[in-house]
Structures are given as structure tokens and as C-alpha cells.
Amino acid sequence: MSFDEEWAELRAEAAAKQTATMHLNSFQAGDGPSGAKEKVKITGAELRRRAGKADIVRGDFRDADNKTMTETKQVGPSLKGFASRSAFEAFVKRWNAQMKYVEGLLEGDVAGALRATADGFSAEDQAQADRHKRASGRDRDLK
């Protein structure tokens, strides 16, 4: 089996395992390594803050990759006349594709999912607030 076939198979398996939903771990008060006394509180603001952190990681990842590839690309011309030059060029091409893939995951599947969930929290909070306002308005009308 060639590298490309094996890689495609591994990616297909990973995609099959990946779910479209996000699961947040939680623990009971007093459990966990810190023995926390409070329950985990997830808010839209907290999710957006974490999405911002994911954006920072993505930027740092991109910068590190750019710096690495600037140095790595200097190797290619020095291999002129060697049989391994085509293999090195294939490596660089695959590397760039994988870095683009990981950056896309960080942008869409991490930061994007966190922001989408935060938007969902906000919409649900607004819907509940509107429902309670309508209910209290009806209560006042009954008095």
C-alpha cells in the first residue's frame, strides 16, 4: 500500500469517528484534580474567549510553519541532480497540504465550533428571556 493510499485510509477513518457535535466534559462539585467547589459554568462569553485563544494558537502555528518552511525550502535547490530531489519536493507538497488542513481544523472545527455554540447559547438565552417576559406580562394582565 502506498503512502497516499494509507494516508487516505487513515483520514477516512478519522473523519468517520469525528462527530458534528461538541461534547463538553463536566464534573461534580468537589471532584476533579483541584477539588473545585463550584460547578463548571459555560457561557457564550467564555466560549468566545476560548475561540479567541484557538485563533491565537492558529496564528502561532501558522507563523511557526512559515518559519520552518522558509528554512526547509532552501534544501530543495541544493538537491539538484540527486534522485532524492523529487521525493523532497513531494514531502514539501504534502507538508503544506497537511499544515493547511490543520490550520483549517483550528479555524473551523475549533474556533468556529466554539463561536457557533456561543451563538446558540445567546439565541437560547434570548428566547428564554422573551418567553419569561411574555409570561410575566400575562400574569400582570390576569391581576
Rank of each mutant, 00 (worst) to 15 (best):
D55K: 10
R11M: 15
A51D: 12
A129L: 11
K80L: 06
M22K: 05
A116C: 05
T72G: 03
D63M: 02
L106G: 02
Q18S: 01
F91G: 00
R49S: 12
T70L: 03
A54D: 07
R134C: 02
G76T: 07
G59Q: 12
F3A: 15
K73Q: 08
A16Q: 04
D31E: 03
F61Y: 15
K73P: 06
N66Q: 12
L47P: 00
A51C: 11
R134W: 10
K80F: 07
D65W: 04
V92P: 00
S122V: 14
D63E: 13
S26I: 06
A12T: 09
A90I: 08
L105I: 15
E103N: 15
D141M: 11
M1I: 02
S2M: 12
Q98R: 15
S2C: 11
P33Q: 03
E9V: 03
E71H: 04
K67M: 05
S34F: 09
K133G: 03
D4R: 12
H132E: 13
A20V: 04
E13W: 08
A54K: 02
A36H: 05
D130H: 09
R85N: 06
G76I: 06
L24R: 08
V92I: 10
R62K: 14
S34N: 05
I56Y: 04
V75Y: 01
D55Q: 11
R131K: 14
G81K: 00
H132I: 09
T117C: 08
K41I: 06
R85E: 10
T117Y: 12
G120R: 11
K143R: 05
T72N: 00
I56A: 01
R50W: 09
E103V: 01
R49M: 08
A127I: 03
P33D: 05
F27C: 08
R85Y: 04
G32S: 11
K53N: 13
L105T: 02
G59I: 05
T72V: 09
G76A: 08
F27W: 08
R134I: 09
R50I: 10
D141C: 07
R11K: 12
R58C: 12
G108Y: 13
D130E: 15
E107D: 15
F88W: 13
L114P: 00
Q98D: 15
Q28W: 11
A97Y: 12
L105C: 05
R58A: 15
T21H: 09
Q128R: 09
V40S: 05
A129I: 10
A116D: 15
E107H: 15
D109C: 10
K41L: 07
K53S: 11
Y101Q: 15
E6V: 13
S2Y: 13
A129G: 06
A45I: 02
K41H: 04
K41R: 04
N66L: 12
M22Q: 09
V75M: 03
A123K: 15
K93P: 01
E9S: 05
R11I: 13
R138D: 14
A123F: 09
A29H: 08
E124D: 03
W95N: 00
S2G: 03
